[in-house]
């Protein structure tokens, strides 16, 4: 049986509505994208959506209690909550510089957690 899934391309303001037709998880056709970037995006979104996770973690001895962080690579959407679980209890010490690697391979994922904000010592 052929099924359909609608995906809105978010890569540019055109916001093309892309239709993916598929049978038991195999893509039959991708329709509606104005440019080829949209086809790639729709395929990725269909097969394995990935997101950059941004959050904040506790920092000790700094001019702020929190330092904002992000993953250096987009990670599978389904893994986001398991990283949040790790971040809940994770803590670093001031000072922190923008770009510092704070954690490598959280939840065995191939990514690093990096600081997005400077925290000075108190």
């Amino acid at each position: 049986m052929i099924k359909e899934k609608e995906i809105t391309c978010i890569l540019c303001p055109n916001g093309c509505d892309i239709k993916i037709t598929y049978t038991s998880q195999e893509i039959q056709g991708i329709d509606g994208a104005t440019c080829s970037k949209g086809n790639d995006y729709a395929k990725q979104e269909f097969e394995n959506p990935v997101r950059t996770l941004t959050s904040s973690i506790l920092v000790k001895g700094g001019d702020s209690d929190l330092v904002s962080v992000k993953t250096d690579e987009p990670i599978p959407l389904e893994k986001i909550m398991s990283i949040m679980e790790i971040l809940k209890t994770f803590e670093v010490k001031a000072p922190v510089m923008v770009g510092d690697v704070l954690l490598e391979n959280p939840a065995d994922l191939n990514c690093k957690l990096i600081a997005t904000r400077e925290i000075k010592r108190k």
């Binding site: 950059t52 941004t54 959050s55 904040s56 904002s68 992000k70 923008v98 997005t116 904000r117 400077e118």
Partner: peptide
């Protein structure tokens, strides 16, 4: 400073940055 999510800078830096990174 409080917009810790990403999506900033694509037009200015051709990269996707978080708010604090863009400000920095």
């Amino acid at each position: 400073n409080q917009c810790i999510h990403d999506g900033f800078g694509l037009h200015k830096f051709k990269e996707i940055l978080t708010g604090p990174e863009y400000a920095y």
